[in-house]
Design a protein around this nucleic acid. Structure first.
Ligand code: SF4
Ligand code: SF4
Lengths: 138, 138
DNA sequence: CTATAAAAAGACAAAAAAGGTCCTTTAGGT
DNA sequence: ACCTAAAGGACCTTTTTTGTCTTTTTATAG
């Protein structure tokens, strides 16, 4: 239950690769895929998701590629996961008004809300810089 | 992401019905299904899961049915969810040794561990008595 | 301005999981 | 013996996951 999909796992691996590259350097899909062991065409889709939400920059044509749009210390694990998997929702009733008729009276509702809030808090508290294992120079 | 399945939702509804019945009374699948709005045959499977892990008692034949195996205050939401969905695992690496080769060096690993521990803590802290909305006589 | 390079977009498809149904068997009562 | 109700298992449909492939767009180099 509550399992991260492969897409989510790949997304993390992919962005970690980018985080480990020298600032401003562009990486090709094929290069990232090979290094992180992710199917190339699948990773391409993931990188598109990243681009859409503004996590990475993409450049087409000769000399193109991908780079982070922000420094690794300002990208949280939550952003990465949500970019490809959508918002963290342990239950439908958290989607919004009307998704479950009795969310006002239901006593289970607040429990799932707590669960979501805890997960979000944890994932928001982790940056990909920490995960990339770079000790940033003081 | 991280969404409870219908089976899990149904499981909660089903056990809440049982929790609201007078102590020791037996309920039929059909009865529980109708009252909680769950497909009868599907609920039957869920109740079988409950029986397997010892959450409910089942009796066959005339006058048979289901009842809780414990008082509602000693059944946690976690037990109910895990009975039908399996253990709470935000990522494969938490399954056990060898499920991911690099779980010792991977910096993401401890994050998922924290996520799981938090979810488990929350769900363990909620009993189905609280959820059933019975104010138990002091 | 044309060839080349690389990402974007979108259609397609296999495999797995979710969500059920149905039928036969087993166990208990009358 | 006969009825009742759960257990077990085979089967099915739909949705989601996990990809692939082809075409289009955008950019650069010569
Ligand atoms: S937890 Fe309660 S409010 Fe949320 S979907 Fe289930 S019944 Fe509805
Ligand atoms: S988080 Fe790390 S240890 Fe866990 S599956 Fe992913 S790479 Fe492996």
């Amino acid at each position: 239950m509550m399992e991260l999909t492969r897409k989510g796992e790949y997304a993390i691996r992919g962005i970690l690769y980018l985080a480990r590259q020298p600032q401003g350097k562009l990486s090709l899909v094929g290069e990232i895929a090979a290094a992180s062991g992710v199917p190339k065409t699948f990773l391409a889709k993931i990188l598109q998701d990243f681009t859409k939400v503004g996590l990475v920059y993409s450049f087409r044509g000769t000399g193109g590629g991908f780079s982070l749009a922000r420094t690794p210390d300002r990208i949280t694990l939550r952003e990465v996961v949500e970019a490809v998997e959508g918002p963290i929702l342990p239950n439908r009733c958290l989607i919004g008004a009307g998704s479950c008729e009795n969310d006002s009276s239901c006593l289970v509702h607040p429990v799932w809300k707590r669960v979501r809030d805890e997960i979000v808090t944890i994932l928001d508290g982790v940056t990909i810089e920490e995960l990339a294992g770079e000790d940033h120079p003081t």
